[in-house]
Design a protein around this nucleic acid. Sequence first.
DNA 1: CTGAAAGCGCTTACAG
DNA 2: CTGAAAGCGCTTACAG
Lengths: 331, 331
Amino acid sequence: MSDVARVAGVHKATASRALNPLTSGQVNQATARRVLAAARQLGYTPNATARSLRTSRTHTVGVLIPDLTNPLFPPVVRGIENVLFPRGYTALVANTDNEPDREAAHFEALLGRQADGFILATGRRDHPLLVSAHERGIPAVLVNRGTDDALYPLVTGDDPAGMTAAVDHLVALGHRRIVHLAGPAGLSTGLRRSQAYRHAVAAHELDARLVECESYTADAGERAMVALLTEAGERPTAVVGGNDLIALGALRAIRAAGLRCPEDVSLTGFNDMPFLDELRPALTSVHVPTHELGVEAARLLLEQIEGAPAVAKTISLPLRLVVRDSTAPPS
Amino acid sequence: MSDVARVAGVHKATASRALNPLTSGQVNQATARRVLAAARQLGYTPNATARSLRTSRTHTVGVLIPDLTNPLFPPVVRGIENVLFPRGYTALVANTDNEPDREAAHFEALLGRQADGFILATGRRDHPLLVSAHERGIPAVLVNRGTDDALYPLVTGDDPAGMTAAVDHLVALGHRRIVHLAGPAGLSTGLRRSQAYRHAVAAHELDARLVECESYTADAGERAMVALLTEAGERPTAVVGGNDLIALGALRAIRAAGLRCPEDVSLTGFNDMPFLDELRPALTSVHVPTHELGVEAARLLLEQIEGAPAVAKTISLPLRLVVRDSTAPPS
DNA sequence: CTGAAAGCGCTTACAG
DNA sequence: CTGAAAGCGCTTACAG
């Protein structure tokens, strides 16, 4: 920047003002033009590090997700990026694998890099990191998964409505024995969907039957379904997966047991991850607007960074059931 | 840090030396312990911004990918992160959507943030950005897709070997009319795989027949397959997709035409993206070790950042054909 | 409208 | 082994 100032024949303070859109009004138009020209000529790129040190704003936000490899998260991250980038922010994405140590290590690293705020999509319902962040006045927003103590805004899908839509659909098809392969109760989505399932079946005066999976994975879903199929008692005619991966695992177990979907067992997923359409049978699922989740979270975070207080409100985005080929009337 | 120094009763220069593992040897052990204790007590986190300004190293690398939502890239990014994070680096991931303007804008933004280096997985074979980066001595590594001018190291799958394995497999099953639904020739993978396809069929003294798709998407694959099926001449008995998405689109078109896979048309993909196993038929594909690609790229970048020259070598990782249910002898 | 000066929080050659 | 000082590249109150 000193070079730019010299070429333009002004003091570097003036160059700084001319180059910053917010302060360029304080500078004579002709002078500003000269500075801009000099900057272009020299191929000048402002040093964001120096700027940050001076202003104590890095225009950087930390995004903590469990695992980028889970198809739920890439669209969330893109939604976040799409609102952040045009406003001059960049996202530092870190994968925690739902391990508290990794999460804490990344959180510390991001704090050291002076992130202006955080978006957390990580799972546990109980979250010591957040308490200390809140005490320190650090802006943050939660996506998809809440914590028991509401300290920060949460952007999430309307899981109860989505779960109700899935159960109602199965009941309308004529199913009476509808089992829920639930996500871990230690995750807020797992708990919330399980509760919604109980309410939904109760509303139809059906019995709740629920198997908790160890994790939101196909393998866990397969194990749970195998266990369910070897249990005594009448076989269920419909299974509601806690998410799509659990449903995929259940599908494997259904086939391995020599059963057909949807003829013998109807099956629904949750999240509507990509390529469900290409499966045979194409999987009925509850669509979650993941991109919009990211967009809303980024907006709320930006508001906080710009001074709005961290209100622990919840923003629920509507979900919709996408009916495909894995659900049919019981035979 | 001044606070830490005061509490420990030393000058901040000494505190700085004690806190940095590389310089803590220069400090009396007892003094160092006092500083560490003070830092812990105050909950001190070093300000990476200030450090960067002083050392002109941000421990940050820019990762430019086309689209995080393409299942090829998340594992690459995780591989990158897995080597970067333990070494104190973080990745700034940006999506370019293969648009030159977006790419240039992100590149500029990352340069302004003083990224220590770049990993580029973006597509075009011709790349003005890279030329200017190279002139400026900026460390960089390419992943998966190379450029025509070799300026930087490239880490990629051994596409020719993968393509040859796919064609050989189909020939061994008895296929003679094998078509390639190619990726765009403007992308280096598209060109490279097409060439390998031509060589592979020529080696079996078969005619090459190739349809170029507009992009690496299911829709483009579907359009290309529809066009192919409406052409005059003998219908092919096997189709080699330029990637899995193209193959998925081809599968749609095959079905829409009332044909069965693999009975009427055998089909292979490329990349072996997640969940191909769950498709019916499960798709035969060439497995690309995406995580390893990211790991190797990050290693090479770190070497450059630490002073190694940017040698334009190519590192080819082995690929292997995963045979599933979408390929069978012609009927 | 512009300049001169101070300072953001570190690191590191230079003395001692 | 430790301290005092300079400086990384910006921004911004304060004068003029």
